[in-house]
Design a protein around this nucleic acid. Structure first.
Length: 424
DNA sequence: TCTGGGGTCCTAGGACCC
DNA sequence: TCTGGGGTCCTAGGACCC
């Protein structure tokens, strides 16, 4: 019996979420767009097989082709994807007490001593997630996380495996690693891929067999860990409890260019409020606030301006009005008239646990029990009634600047008034 | 007309200290 | 003729992930 990592990865996750509620889209090409309908960020297998759309293609450039091929299009619906993700993760959590939710559509499960046949066990996970949530997944099994990622990739690539692949036996592993490009290894991105090619390393197997000293010198300690993991030596442990964020960013592109300070202030206030909500959800306070702002760099004929400024708060805070106030003031410091702004954002950093933030009991800026109760109440209402049920007037009502979402599906699972209806 | 958002880790180099 | 040795902290930049 061996200790093993299972990586469970949802297939074309955003597309699959949309398909659960529109079964007619099964076996059809479907794409999902990024925020603001900017880029193509998810493609169904059928859309990938058309071979026309690279991941990340700007939607406006491919819109004609998308229409010509009858590809279904959706705006990002993170309310739906977040809720579907939670259901998938709850289903998986029943298989092992040791689980790391790695991203919205992936989780690692760890088994100290698995008695069962790994492929059969992975198939059971796949079937149960499908049955309970409607989401198709692929499963990779191996003694390290990096190999489990690789196994999952192979399982997806090769339909005969039914979406489950184990790299457990040393026999045959060389051929499998040789069939995967080094750039397909977790931790090897485009830059390293090119660098490796120039040095004669093209496949995962060749990377695995590269000399330690050379890897350490050229790819840092992180690269060396990756190589050891390819050899079956576990160096990247399961991270069950995600560490508190060291920085929290909330930023968006605008649906239309924004020029006036009043509109920008609304947007910045809304972003600050959202960042503060995330901050409180990890029971922390922020010591510093930064705001950044920029025009559209793709519009080369427009005058360009971008800037960012930060301030340290006299006392760390998680109180939304205080953070909004600081952010809007920073915006005023760098705002210049006569530019068409495309994007703004708020970043909170120097983050610490809320109870450590009580350094100066006499400051009039200090968060009090009263302000905390107020925020807890507000967060509670927004949790149960939907985000945005309660907000600050400074965030604006009309919100001309809000993002474009022309192809939005309903929030089927989180809003009673958007629940799907069955037709007889 | 139209190009996303949110994070982490590592290293090099400079400032400063003893 | 020919630079001291470390330690720590900070920042900027580069790489990666989804």
């Amino acid at each position: 019996m061996k200790s093993l990592y299972f990586l469970v990865d949802c297939n074309s996750f955003y597309v699959s979420c949309e398909r659960v509620f529109k079964p007619a889209l099964r076996n059809r090409p479907v794409v999902v767009l990024s925020n603001n309908d900017g880029n193509v960020v998810a493609l169904s297998r059928e859309a990938k097989e058309l071979g026309l759309l690279p991941f990340g293609a700007p939607f406006f450039k491919v819109q004609q082709m998308v229409r010509a091929h009858g590809i279904a299009v959706f705006s990002s619906n993170y309310t739906l994807y977040g809720d579907m993700s939670r259901r998938v993760m709850e289903t998986l959590a029943e298989f092992s007490p040791e689980m790391e939710v790695y991203s919205i559509d992936e989780a690692f499960l760890f088994f100290r001593a698995l008695g069962a046949d790994p492929v059969g066990y992975g198939a059971m996970m796949r079937d149960r997630v499908r049955q309970w949530t409607g989401i198709p997944v692929s499963v990779g099994v191996a003694p390290t996380k990096t190999l489990a990622k690789l196994a999952c990739r192979i399982g997806k690539r090769d339909p005969a495996r039914g979406g489950v692949c184990a790299l457990v036996d040393p026999a045959g592993i060389d051929e499998l690693l040789d069939s995967v490009d080094a750039g397909g290894v977790w931790g090897v991105g485009g830059q390293y891929r090119e660098f490796l090619r120039k040095n004669g390393i093209r496949t995962a197997r060749e990377l695995r067999d590269a000399p330690d000293r050379w890897v350490r010198r050229n790819m840092t300690i992180t690269g060396l860990r990756t190589v050891w993991e390819l050899r079956g030596v576990s160096c990247i442990p399961l991270d069950e409890v995600p560490a508190a964020k060291k920085a929290i960013v909330s930023s968006r592109s605008f649906g239309v260019p924004v020029e006036g300070l009043a509109d920008l202030s609304e947007a910045v206030a809304a972003y600050a409020a959202r960042a503060a909500e995330k901050l409180r959800s990890q029971r922390c306070a922020a010591g510093s606030v930064a705001v950044f702002l920029s025009t559209n760099p793709f519009k080369e004929d427009d005058p360009q301006y971008s800037n960012g400024v930060a301030v340290r708060l006299s006392v760390p805070s998680s109180y939304t009005p205080r953070l909004i106030h600081a952010a809007v003031r920073l915006l005023g410091l760098m705002y210049r008239r006569g530019y068409r702004y495309k994007k703004a954002g708020v970043m909170l950093y120097e983050i610490m646990p809320q109870h450590d933030a009580q350094l100066d009991l006499f400051s009039r800026f200090h968060d009090t029990e009263r302000t905390r109760r107020l925020m807890r109440t507000m967060d509670g209402v927004n949790r149960t009634q939907g985000r945005g049920a309660l907000f600050f007037a400074s965030e604006g009502i009309a919100r001309q600047w809000r993002m474009r979402r022309s192809f939005l599906s309903a929030r089927y699972t989180t809003r009673w008034d958007e629940i799907p209806a069955a037709r007889a």
